[in-house]
Amino acid sequence: MSFVEVNNLVKHFPIRGGILNRVIAQVQAVSDVSLRIEKGETLGVIGESGCGKSTLGKTMIRLIEPTSGDVRFDGVEITGLSHAELMPIRQRMQFIFQDPYSSLNPRMTAQQMLAEVIRFHDVVPAKETDKYIEELLETVQLRKDSKNRYPHEFSGGQRQRLNIARALAVKPDFIIADEPVSALDVSVQAQILNLLMDLREKFGLTIMFISHDLKVVEHFCDRMVVMYLGTIVERLSCDDIYNQAQHPYTKALLKSNPINDPDDRETLYILEGEVPSPSNPPPGCPFVTRCDIAEERCKSERPPLVQLGDEHQIACWAVTHPANASTSSDAL
């Protein structure tokens, strides 16, 4: 059994309207996502804005209640648990938010902020709290004397360190990091990524790393899933994504990512069209409206996620269907 298992997770947000304020449509933020994360693994979740990657992360630790589907964490199904039952498990799974500017309470010092979490989850005895906080700050490479400072006195990178300290305070095994470096400058981004790599090793953390930056995901993660319009379209190892990727959307993402070589100006690949609305997705493959290898079948039938290699899964009729018709039963 995997450390974290997500089975057929669905999250629909209702759109209300009309004079009776009835539900008139659903935004299908996450539709039927299944994934596994092994202990100690770092899984990257990549996709463009609005593809449902953040909602997936938040639903997985029940910051948002799922519409259907289940999430298993270390063998325990957490979707049906009561609030009280969930608390000890919440302590083991933590979330690092994207925006270091809005995710810290401006009226609490670093010390108060960390102490609150530590007290709530009863991580260490009360009289050791101060010492523990100093240790934590040291772990994330902040100066000990910064504990009496307020968030506005920290720079963006330092705030993100504080966010990481807060997540680590309860000694979690599993961390969901939602775009932890996208608001930062490249040099600061490198510092935070190094820190996360060190901590991952030191504490044996399992990480789900949500990002839109392919370069960062490729560097930091073991495996990645590519999301489009609420579904996973491809799952692959991060070792050699440029040669491995087969889904037309993944390929388009790779090719539209500007590379740092002025001599290699192979014209940026242009993906035509816009993402369909998540409240009215196409009935077949979600990518069909922008795909250049789409077939007739793609318009009507949603492709299942099919095993291609050991660590490679893909949801695309054009890739899986013509080559082999037998593998479709391996769908996850």
């Binding site: 490249v186 040099s187 981004q189 490198a190 510092q191 990524l193 190094n194 790599m197 370069k215 960062v216 490729e218 560097h219 930091f220 991060c238 070792d239 050699d240 440029y242 590379i259 740092n260």
Partner: peptide, 22 residues
């Protein structure tokens, strides 16, 4: 130079290595 080095690079041998920082 430092700025260019702090960007994650593609390729197997760079993977998981610490990034250069300023």
């Amino acid at each position: 130079r430092a700025l260019l080095q702090s960007i994650p690079r593609s390729g197997k041998k760079e993977k998981g290595k610490r990034l250069a920082t300023i």
